[in-house]
Design a binder for these strands. Sequence first.
DNA 1: CGCTCCCATGTGGTCTGACCACACTGTACC
DNA 2: GGTACAGTGTGGTCAGACCACATGGGAGCG
Lengths: 271, 271
Amino acid sequence: MAADASAEPRAWEQVLQHIERRLLDGDLAPGDRLPGERALAAELGVGRSSVREALRVLEVLGLIRTHTGSGPTAGAIIIATPGGGMSALMRLQVAASGFPVADIVATRLVLEASVAGDLAAASAVEPGPDLAAADRLLDAMDDAALAAPDFLALDAAFHLALAEASGNQVITATMAGLRSGIEGYALAGLARIDDWHAASARLRSEHRGVVAAIRAADAATARTRMHDHISGYYAQTSPDRTFATPEPPPHPADLDEVAVDVVPTGENDIT
Amino acid sequence: MAADASAEPRAWEQVLQHIERRLLDGDLAPGDRLPGERALAAELGVGRSSVREALRVLEVLGLIRTHTGSGPTAGAIIIATPGGGMSALMRLQVAASGFPVADIVATRLVLEASVAGDLAAASAVEPGPDLAAADRLLDAMDDAALAAPDFLALDAAFHLALAEASGNQVITATMAGLRSGIEGYALAGLARIDDWHAASARLRSEHRGVVAAIRAADAATARTRMHDHISGYYAQTSPDRTFATPEPPPHPADLDEVAVDVVPTGENDIT
DNA sequence: CGCTCCCATGTGGTCTGACCACACTGTACC
DNA sequence: GGTACAGTGTGGTCAGACCACATGGGAGCG
């Protein structure tokens, strides 16, 4: 904390702080256009290259989008789409061994189980969550002609659709980033699957099961099924790692009164 | 998805991709030094400013650290400390209204409840989690002379220490980022607290309660207490906002026998 | 009068070259 | 042997110059 006291001689940080302050003050809001790079440089008394370094950071973080040319779409425009920045962060951290894949999977388990439980809880009251996008992806995944990588892309979109349906933008963006971080890992894991046809059938079935539990407003089952679904896939694609689910066999259909919170997940079964 | 196909002529992206590839290939690992900016520019056939933009991104994302001068500590060195990048991302997204504060708090609830549950489960087996850092912070917070902002800083460090004890680096970094994103919000909320002395006493008590539940290997209680602790503070500091608790009502415990089942392994350490 | 074409203008994207401050390193000097 | 100092290479910054691109307004034509 407070390690940034004293002076910040770095010019590009001044630019970053200036833009952040203008955002916090309400001077800038999503949809607004930033001043041009040259104007910003003159305004802050720094070189244009320093401005560009700050803008590059903002762009990677998903805060601005830049277009060349002129007109209303040109220039740097404030957007607030954290997905991209999260993805870049996760991907690079994984590449640099900063994030073990096992930790990412464990985090996915926590977040997605929570999402599934929330959606199920939301199903108990009108109008319930909007699962139309998830349903469409589910149907698309039924196409038997799908190649495995395409199937996985739809799978990722399905999980993301559920997160979006939960309405929590932070969880949605984080999950998108986590997925990106382990995308290469998931694709590489395909090679370890002997019978893709059977595997994809199981994944499809598990997806339907999760959605069914959500629609039934059965939070505990939804959480459990989501947990088993995710951990099962990674257990299959990385047999060397111990992804053993320490939980009782997945026959969670009996929780009407057992619903006692169950401490459903919480376990990072990693080694 | 897949909107990034075709060509990415942006020179700085080439640099980024080149470094990412070298990381994935194992040519670069944490602790290694990157080639100099001039060398990198010549090697990739781009200008030095483009290299710098890429390095700036890597620096903000927490992948490298740069030092001027010469010697073994100078230059750009690969580090993999995602905390900084996560914090910058969250802070800026909050500033740009990309992340509602309520969503951040909800995500904290999910992650921290999971952490508390994991730690409690890990306490069931030897040697149990390392809570020494958390204990020290707890003691430090007992200092009655602490100003409120200092207390909050220790509070944040305490929560972070718990996350670190859980061993999941992704959750730790994410929680650090979430905290940063709402730091200003938490500080502003102090003004809404009438009796800081009583409030801090309650927070301290709640902290002790969480740790006690963890030590007792009582996962459900640990989760519940952590959930109530976090949501309670934000409910107090933002009474006008409705913090719809995203989770099903935190059932109190009845887990005497449930507590055993899970998670035999707590150690993951490095890979 | 209306339409079309075209170029002036302003944007980001990139490169080059030049300084500066800094920190180590080896050497010359004492 | 020890100390002071210049050399060297690093990132940090700036200035200036192009380029590609997209718009928009004006000139020219029908």
